[in-house]
Structures are given as structure tokens and as C-alpha cells.
Design a protein around this nucleic acid. Structure first.
Lengths: 253, 253
DNA sequence: TCAATAGTGTCTGTTAGACACTATGGC
DNA sequence: GCCATAGTGTCTAACAGACACTATTGA
């Protein structure tokens, strides 16, 4: 007996990985962007035609991330992504075909990569806007199957945590960008109006290095181009204190 | 064929739940408290005698939380706790006996409940201090087996997130308490010196309601007793802005 | 009385929001 | 020149750290 219980008498559970690919659209005519989620259409028999997240069952002794990589390639057309495990869905009734669990994984990817995957087979994949954890699925489908909306919620929270205080850490923009471009990306993720133009500049300018170059070809004064500064080691996930400690004041004698 | 692949040909994985019971000690002689983690000693053959977290494999179609409840009762002597799934450990080599995964769960519990469980069988259970994600295991054991230190790290982060801005949300203290008592609990979780006495009072007093009663029997001026105020609905996990928006200023004509 | 803790008041530096004002390119 | 956008300076409110001062109990 290898285990505490006679586990060999029990069947194990089939574990799947489900992927939340997130990207940010290029600016529209008025400069606005959208946070987008990739969904795919099921082509096999069960719940055929329904829109869902790319997912795949793990082969024996496969890691979640390895399975995510294979799934991303085969079902989403994405060949490399920064994976991050977020949830475990374990309701035994979530799939009527049997006992399964799903590990939810988020992966922010550049828009061009997502767009190319969509164009490869536009019938089976789509990018849908996600605003404030509400998704607009194609064909008016109200929500994702198998309880996957929970993964979308956590994925959006994950992105907001990262875009709260760091300039485009997932590199939706290239190496250099203007402050307006940067803010349009952060607006898409944090929600418009989270930062005023003033606060945004003050919060993020100190985390950027000016390249000395300027934008051109657009109306208005050319904007300075910046690159991300060497980021300080973060470590904790806890919000930092706002005020740095000051020097102790000298007591009067 | 029920699934996308011939899954029935594959064995599933055996999934376990591992529990991080956290509590806060009563004040020592100088009023300080400690964040404590419950560890148990393995009594079965494999890695016998080693200190680890209470854990248990899931029976077929059991949920993680159901298994946590059984495990808490049988291995930790804890009969009710507020469970929260935090991690999934999926390294296929983490247990040399076979392919397993572990879902990590955190559960803050009152000290009395933890203390009673320890006293029931002091040989097999212990409460060890956790400071800044470092654990002091009995017998100088350097770390937990099976990669469980990752769960402890995330559990501490989880507690810090919650104790950063809310007064003892996990009710380590009773219904009423003084500000000093409250701060000693927060110090144990956030680390001493995170809040100065001044900042602590200003941050938390507005989230409390004075009962009108006062402490007695201790040295010094009696302290006012407070209870937790009706907490505002939080919703997002993102830190709130510090400054509330002010009224728009009236433009000069 | 003294030691120890509770509670109040105040000063300073930092930051966010608001907004006015200047700068500069395309049309 | 006009318009739209970029960038700067300034005022105010809120808040954190520091610290002095008062209040009140037990020993």
C-alpha cells in the first residue's frame, strides 16, 4: 500500500486546464482600447457550438503549465505565453459526463499574436470585450459553461492588480510609447476614469525613462516617448505604504 | 467516447487537500502576539515522523472543501473553519509514490480552538510561529515536505491582504477589544512596525464603534472598548484609492 | 507618588484631484 | 490662425509619521 488510504482502489480525477487569454485592442478612432478575451467554439459533440475557453485534459504526469502550452498551441493558436495558475474548479457536477476538475490559467498576450490566431480560423475563435468582469459572448450566449466565468473574474482581477501601479508590465505596448498610449491601455484594464490625466502622469512618469524621441504624425503637440524603467524588485503582493517614512525629527531640548 | 480524448484509457490523478490552519497567540508578558501555523507529524510509513500540514486525498466526487472538512476533523481536530482555496501544486515528481496533486487551503481559526486540538494529542500536533513566511518547525526540521512551503507563503500573504485595512476580519479577538489588543493582532500578521501607533489609531478607529465600556484591571489608563463597525461591501480585491474625489472646483469667470 | 498606558492636538511632508496656463505640431 | 493635444505650475484636501502634551489607572 503506497498511500495512506487504499487509493489504488479509487479512480483519480481527470484534471483539465482552461485558458483565459487576455489582450488589449489597438486604439479606436477616439483612442480608446478594450480588454479582450479569447473564446473558442466547441466542435465536438457535447455542448457543440457553444463558446467557451480553450481547455484540455492533462495526460498522465503532465504539469498544468505543460498542458496549457499544448492547449494554447492546438486550440488557441498561441505558441508562447506567460502562464499563471489562478483557480481550481472542483464542483463534481460541473461536467455531467463525469468527475473532472479544472485548473484555470491566465495568459496576457500581445494583440497581434491574438489577432493572428483569430484570423487563422475565424469561425472557431473570437476575441470578446471584457468590461468589469462582464463578457459579451458571440450569439448572445449569456455565460461560459462549466463555471468558467469564475476564471474570467479572477483573470481580470489579476490584470488590475498588475496594472494598478506598474506601467504596462505585460507589454501590450512595444518598448517605447507616449503617456497617452500608456494610459489608454491602463484605462482598458482598470476602467476609464480610474486615474485622472494628472494622477496618471504623476504616478507613472517616475517609473519611466524618456527616450529623447517624440511622437509625430498626429494632431497636437508631439508627445515624448518613454520606455519602462528598471523596475524595483516587488516581492510582496501587499500594497505598499503610501508615505515613505521620514527622518525622525530632532527633539527640542 | 464521453470526452475529447480517450480519457477513459488514462488514469486520473489523485488529488489531495492540504490545510494551512493559522491562528494568533494570546499576548505574552509584554503584550506581543505571534502568527501560528498548525503542523502535524506523519505517523504512516512514508516520511514517518516528519512534520507536515494536515492533508488528505479526495474520495471520488468529493469537493476540495468537503475533503478539507473531513481532514480538519480527523487529522487536525478542527471541526469548523472558513476555508479558502489558494494553490494547486502539480509537480508530478512532488510525491515519489505516484502522480498526485495538492490543493492548498487556508483556514484562520481562533486560538482556543487550535489550542484545544493541540492538547488533545500533543505528540502529533503543534503550533509553530510563522514570521515573514519563515516557519520554525519542531526538531529543527528545515522545511515542509511536498512543496508545501508555497502554501504557507500564500496563506501569510492572504492574511496580510485582509489585515492591511480591516480590523481583525477573521475574529481572532472577540466581539469587543481595545485598540492596543487590535494592534497586537495586526502586528503579528503584518509584522511589527508596519503601522505606527498613530497611524494605526487613525486607520482603524473609523472602522470601529465604541461600546462605551472600558477595559480594567491592567496598568495604565483604562482603554475604550470597540466593536467592528458594519463593514462596507468590498467586492474588488484591488486596493482602493487613498484620496476620495473632492467636489469640482468652481471656475473663475 | 510614579510608572505605564490611553487619548488628543499639532506640525510637516507627500500625494491626489482639479484646473489654469503655456507649448507646439497639423490643417 | 485655429484646434487639439502635450506638458508645467499651483492650490487644496487628505493623510502618514513624528512627537508633545494631557488623562487616568494600579502598584
Amino acid at each position: 500500500m503506497a498511500f495512506d488510504y487504499d487509493l489504488d482502489d479509487f479512480p483519480g480525477v481527470h484534471v483539465a486546464v482552461d485558458l483565459a487569454f487576455l489582450t488589449v485592442s489597438p486604439p479606436d478612432s477616439s483612442g480608446g482600447r478594450q480588454l479582450l478575451l479569447m473564446v473558442v467554439r466547441r466542435k465536438d459533440g457535447f455542448r457543440q457550438g457553444e463558446w467557451t475557453l480553450p481547455g484540455r485534459f492533462l495526460r498522465p504526469r503532465e504539469t498544468v503549465i505543460d498542458a496549457a502550452e499544448v492547449c494554447g498551441r492546438e486550440k488557441a493558436g498561441i505558441h508562447k505565453a506567460p502562464w499563471r495558475k489562478l483557480t481550481i474548479l472542483d464542483d463534481p457536477d460541473r461536467d455531467p459526463r463525469g468527475w473532472t476538475m479544472s485548473v484555470g490559467v491566465v495568459a496576457p498576450i500581445p494583440f497581434d499574436q491574438a489577432r493572428k490566431a483569430i484570423d487563422e480560423d475565424s469561425v472557431d475563435r473570437a476575441l470578446v470585450p471584457v468590461s468589469d468582469t462582464r463578457i459579451m459572448l458571440p450569439n448572445g450566449q449569456p455565460e461560459l459553461p462549466f463555471g468558467l466565468n469564475e476564471l474570467v473574474d479572477k483573470s481580470v482581477s489579476y490584470m488590475r492588480d498588475r496594472y494598478y501601479r506598474l506601467p504596462d508590465p505585460k507589454h501590450f505596448l512595444g518598448e517605447t510609447f507616449t503617456l497617452s498610449e500608456l494610459q489608454s491601455v491602463h484605462d482598458a484594464i482598470l476602467g476609464e476614469g480610474f486615474y485622472s490625466r494628472d494622477s496618471f502622469r504623476r504616478t507613472f512618469e517616475r517609473l519611466l525613462t524618456p527616450t529623447g524621441e517624440f511622437s509625430s504624425g498626429t494632431v497636437g503637440k508631439p508627445a515624448a516617448l518613454f520606455r519602462r524603467a528598471r523596475r524595483s524588485p516587488s516581492g510582496s503582493s501587499m500594497p505598499r505604504r503610501i508615505n515613505r517614512p521620514s527622518e525622525p525629527r530632532i527633539s527640542k531640548p
